[in-house]
Structure formats: C-alpha cells, structure tokens
C-alpha cells in the first residue's frame, strides 16, 4: 500500500460525522466611497505611495518625479516609455538584480487591506520582488471592498503565480521594530489610471 493510500484510509477510518459547511452567515463590510478609502488605505495600511493619474499627466511623469535618481527601470508595459530594460528579454531572472524601479500592472485593489492582486504577467516574477522600488499600475475602476469580493471575481483563478501585495517588504523581527525593506522592494508606488 502506498503512503497516500495509508493516509487516506486512516483519514476515512478516523473521520467523525460530516459537518455541513453552511452559509457564510454575515454580510461582509463595504465602504461608501471605495476608491477614496482604497487610496487612503494604500498609504496608511500598506505604507505605499498612491497617485491618481491626472488629465494631461503620464505614468512616466509620475515615475520620474517619484524616482528621479532611478537609472535602471524595468517594465514590459507599453505605457512605460521611460523603461530602460524590457525584463522579458532577459533569459536569467538573476539579471534583474540591480533594478532600481520595476513597473507591473495590478488587476484589482482591495479596500479593506490596501492590497493589490498582481498575477504574473512578466517572464520572471523576480521583477516584483528584487526591484528596489515597485510601481503598480491599476485601473481605478477595479476596486473591491473586501477579500470575499476579491476571490469571487470572475476569472480570478486564471493565473500561474499571483500575489496580493500590500506595500513595500517589511519585517519587525528585531524587537518588534518595524523596518521597511526586508528582502523585497523598499518602496511601492501605486498609480491609479
């Protein structure tokens, strides 16, 4: 008998009477002005910067303004013309080391925690984690109130790798003191299109 069979048999033999799942049993929290609250939470909860793209302003303008010293900007998005590297042209993700700014597209934002769902749409997911700063472009119409709405979005399951990212990488492992920039980006900027 394989280990799988042994385990499954033991589980079946030891399983108590089945418990029904039942309905959710509550109405999840929603927000009066989701877009405004989302912008607030991206800053206050996720510790990121957040800009609403204004008329006549380009994504490049904001990236250049926020990261004036960035030399290596990596993105495969057509609207990011200030990109100096197309990350999809690199064979080895290690070549992304030394990226100052990585720019990716988020699919939707979640108001209750300020996180943004980013399914991998670049060749190497390393871009989302190794860049010193991460810029996330997000359509301002794609905002959900809470995680229940997030996971219930049609087509959610259509990804290979995806992450809800809430701001820059952080840790509090030394005496509970919050430090930004543990392993991933030290800075995150959200641009709402």
């Amino acid at each position: 008998m394989t280990s799988k069979d042994t385990i499954l048999e033991a589980l079946k033999a030891n399983s108590p009477a089945p418990v029904e799942r039942g309905p959710l049993g509550f109405t999840p929290m929603t927000f009066q002005d989701p877009l405004a609250k989302f912008q607030e939470n991206v800053v206050s909860i996720a510790a990121a910067k957040c800009f609403l793209l204004q008329d006549g302003e380009s994504v490049d303008d904001i990236i250049r303004r926020v990261y004036p010293d960035a030399k290596r900007i990596a993105s495969n998005l057509p609207e990011v013309t200030c990109a100096t590297v197309n990350p999809d042209g690199l064979d080895d993700p290690r070549q992304l080391a030394g990226t100052d700014v990585g720019v990716v597209r988020g699919e939707f934002g979640v108001v209750e925690n300020g996180a943004i769902w980013i399914p991998r749409a670049v060749r190497h997911k390393a871009l989302m984690f190794i860049s010193e700063a991460l810029v996330i472009l997000l359509d301002r119409r794609n905002i959900v109130n809470n995680m229940h709405e997030a996971y219930a979005r049609p087509g959610f399951d259509d990804y290979e790798f995806g992450s809800f990212i809430a701001g820059p990488s952080k840790t509090a492992d030394i005496e509970q003191a919050l430090v930004i920039g543990a392993h991933g980006p030290r800075d995150v900027t959200v641009i709402l299109l």
């Binding site: 996180a115 290979e160 790798f161 992450s163 809430a166 701001g167 990488s169």
Partner: peptide, 12 residues
C-alpha cells in the same frame, strides 16, 4: 490587515 505578500502558486 493582511501580510505584505499573500502569494498564490498554481503552476510552475
């Protein structure tokens, strides 16, 4: 409110 990264691995 959530961890900074909640990462979903579905396919290699």
């Amino acid at each position: 409110h959530s961890t900074t990264y909640t990462s979903h691995y579905k396919r290699p």
